[in-house]
């Protein structure tokens, strides 16, 4: 099974370059009046595709997994890594005639490295309408801290 790691970058300074690229892409779309379909290559060609966001306290990892139930999913963490694996089961009905078969069944596994330290004890995962959301609290030392300037 293929697993690929993301975020094997130094923690410092890489995020801004991503944001810059995203901004440029949006700007070009606006100017050219085109959608970016076909221009974007997924960052890692491993199912499932994920979106990662952060708040001050948490990382939020989301993946679209239609038809996958909680029993078919396995989420594990070690250190800063998180692995989502499972299987999407689609039983073909032998008694019917298929006209289209576009939905794919199969197994998947994806490992990711988060950009900061996490509190592994408090990770929460939910599956709603086929979208998996994993809330990963940042460890105390990875949270931003406000620094007051003394006058």
């Amino acid at each position: 099974m293929i697993t690929r790691r993301l975020f094997d970058f130094p923690d410092f300074g890489w995020r801004n370059s991503f944001e810059e690229m995203e901004r440029m892409r949006r700007y070009l779309d606006q100017v050219l009046g085109q959608s970016e379909a076909g221009l974007r290559i997924p960052a890692a060609g491993v199912f499932p595709l994920v979106n990662l966001t952060e708040t001050k306290e948490n990382y939020m990892l989301r993946a679209e997994l239609p038809g996958v139930t909680a029993q078919d999913l396995d989420i594990q963490t070690t250190g800063r890594n998180i692995t989502i694996s499972g299987e999407r089961k689609i039983e073909p009905d032998p008694n019917v005639r298929y006209h289209r078969r576009e939905r794919e069944p199969g197994r998947f596994s994806r490992a990711m490295t988060l950009p900061g330290d996490i509190d592994r004890e408090k990770i929460e995962a939910s599956l709603e309408n086929g979208v998996l959301t994993i809330t990963i609290p940042k460890s105390e030392k990875a949270r931003p801290r406000q620094i007051t300037i003394k006058s």
Binding site: V96, R97, R101, R103, N129, G130
Partner: peptide
């Protein structure tokens, strides 16, 4: 943006069954 959901369509004598992946739709 608008996406095309992938579908499975099957048919037997009485019904046509359509399954579509629409993750995120309530």
């Amino acid at each position: 943006r608008v996406f095309i959901p992938p579908v499975d369509i099957s048919e037997d004598e009485n019904v046509i069954t359509l399954l579509a992946d629409m993750p995120g739709v309530a």
